[in-house]
Design a protein around this nucleic acid. Structure first.
Lengths: 169, 169
DNA sequence: CCTAACCTTGAAGCTAACTTCAAGGTCAAG
DNA sequence: CTTGACCTTGAAGTTAGCTTCAAGGTTAGG
């Protein structure tokens, strides 16, 4: 099977498949005499596995270290460990999300709870003060990490609490 | 207040503060005769607001469009709308996470449920097949987006379902 | 034999949110 | 008057996961 066909069957683009090969996720691809890549039917499964793992929140790096060259010989221990840790990561993220959601809901309520005798400016200040008071500022949560945030096509990131001493060296 | 002091009080680095100014998040910073930036005490609050919003899942872009130049004059409607939509985004992500978590748990169980008479290789194949069957492949979830994933210092992303016709043009 | 659809490569571009670097000005203390 | 901490700028680097581009080889059909 040539790369175009594999692309169709797996739902990926040829460029993406080549990229995966480039970073060592797909190794030992066969070549025809003319230089064209050629894949065994099994490749569809490997790609399916990769995108499933991605959706579950694994980075390509993690996937690479877990993927055995031979699909029938997994490192059972490492795999279980990774799965378990990923679940923990997800749970940590869920906690964070629940907090964020609650925080936003409280904020909305607070905004709407403007005392009748208070003008918008004063209310804005009140809300802001409340909000910042709620946020211990520079709290450095330091928990696990996870990447899991697309749904459709997004790229994102987030990274507060990375601080460098502005202090004396 | 000079930038170093503001950095200390807000917990951000000077470079990050300059960066925020550069992208138009912090406007009209004062300058001393020597060229040094100078900030009003209020700036600490503005930065606190920005990092709080970031933690809640807003991008700097979103924050910029919502942040009024005058902290007492918010676009109430736009703000409420953004908050509400962000909550919806969070909820969508929570759903996704719950599914991912369940998926991983099922996977773990499935791996451990190896029939006594089956060897590892065959079991691997069985699990793989089950997993891929569960995944309708190329499902293109297409929901809202959100960025909310740091806790400590990470960058991440995820983006399946971006597909280009490999087909005839 | 031509053409369109395929394949090849390496390098560069994209996004978000910053940091780091290079090269240089300013200022208070000793 | 020198040192070191601080400030300035613009440009380039970082990360992840790809895509896009340029420049060219291959192949099947008509």
């Amino acid at each position: 099977m040539k790369i175009g066909e594999l692309a169709q069957q797996s739902g990926l683009t040829p460029s993406r498949i080549r990229f995966y090969e480039q970073i060592g996720l797909l190794k030992a691809v066969g070549r025809r005499p003319n230089g064209y890549r050629t894949y065994p039917p099994q490749a569809v499964m490997i790609l399916g596995l990769i995108i499933t793992a991605q959706r579950a929140g694994f980075t390509l790096d993690e996937i690479r270290t877990l993927l055995p060259s031979d699909l029938t010989h997994w490192d059972h221990a490492a795999l279980m460990d990774a799965l378990t840790r990923k679940i923990a990561d997800i749970e940590a993220l869920q906690v964070r999300l629940t907090q964020s959601r609650a925080h936003l809901l409280r904020l909305i309520e607070d905004i709407q709870a403007r005392p009748d005798d208070m003008d918008c400016a004063a209310n804005a200040h009140r809300v802001l003060t409340n909000m910042l008071a709620e946020n211990p500022e520079a709290l450095d949560v330091t928990s696990g990490d996870i990447r899991l945030l697309d749904t459709k096509d997004r790229r994102q990131s987030l990274s507060p609490s990375r601080r460098k001493k502005t202090a004396p060296r």
